[in-house]
């Protein structure tokens, strides 16, 4: 013990304690699950992040006559919707989303393996870590959140050469590109990506964020839209689907 003592409430406030929601995460989730008795266990298993339970519940639904591809939207995405809603409301935290996304991806793979046709993508997004930068935990979070929101992610990994980004965008025709970087020394690769995309006539929104990246820097190149939080990535993709152009995206996400 320190020799001095004080009442901490006079000098600090734990606002997270003060603001915590009364409802427990499990109670909040229970209110959001679908009622269908074949679908609900799938959604529950996504919320719990239990891959084996997800596949088992999907199998039961398919055996009962449900279409495997329809189950992606009608069950897996519904379960993931519960997770992302609770995350957005601050009721659950990122690790829950990551574990749910793992379960959802396993579920999607299982559904694909049980079907003849391929599911329709909501929108494709190319994600990468800047050339010269090997710090990829931020990108891992971004890709998980995008997948959790039903976007099709092309994950190029870390330390990705500018050429590879451009070639992938030409081939995949994404609705958005994301770039993350930890270091100020590597984030300059984003400018090169921007310039090469423009040269190729590819005017795709380029969301940039991570450690040392800031809005001032991202604002210096035309396609750049600053993402302060990883959770901004799916919001930006949704805004693009809703018709937002670069100007509107910058207006919405450039908050400083």
């Amino acid at each position: 013990m320190t020799s001095l003592d004080l009442d901490p409430s006079e000098i600090l406030e734990r606002y997270n304690v003060k603001m915590e929601k009364a409802m427990t995460p499990d109670d909040a989730a229970a209110e959001l699950y679908p009622k269908d008795e074949l679908i609900r266990p799938i959604a529950e298993s996504i919320y719990e992040g239990e891959e084996d339970d997800t596949v088992e519940a999907l199998q039961k639904a398919i055996d009962a006559g449900k279409d495997p591809i329809a189950l992606i939207d009608d069950a897996l995405m519904v379960g993931m919707g519960v997770v992302t809603k609770l995350y957005d409301e601050g009721i659950i935290f990122l690790p829950n989303v990551m574990m749910s996304a793992d379960a959802m991806l396993d579920g999607i793979d299982f559904c694909k393996s049980q079907a003849k046709e391929a599911p329709v993508s909501k929108g494709k997004i190319v994600c990468h870590v800047a050339e010269g930068d090997v710090h990829d935990i931020g990108k891992s979070i971004v890709t998980a959140l995008l997948r959790a929101n039903a976007f099709d992610v092309v994950d190029l990994g870390r330390d990705v050469p500018v050429d590879e980004v451009i070639e992938t965008v030409k081939k995949e025709k994404p609705i958005m590109v994301t770039g993350t970087a930890l270091m100020t020394t590597t984030m300059y690769a984003f400018k090169a990506v921007n310039d090469r995309l423009l040269e190729a006539g590819l005017k795709v929104p380029f969301q940039c964020g991570g450690g040392a990246v800031n809005q001032d820097f991202v604002s210096t190149y035309e396609l750049g839209v600053y993402g302060e939080e990883a959770a901004d990535a799916p919001k930006m993709a949704e805004a693009i689907l809703a018709g937002a152009d670069l100007g509107k995206l910058k207006e919405q996400f450039h908050q400083h």
């Binding site: 320190t2 020799s3 001095l4 003592d5 004080l6 901490p8 000098i11 600090l12």
Partner: peptide
């Protein structure tokens, strides 16, 4: 020094 140390500690010990 111990008083200063303890004041620095107390200013944050219950913050988190």
């Amino acid at each position: 020094s111990k008083n200063l140390r303890d004041m620095m500690v107390l200013s944050d010990k219950y913050r988190d």
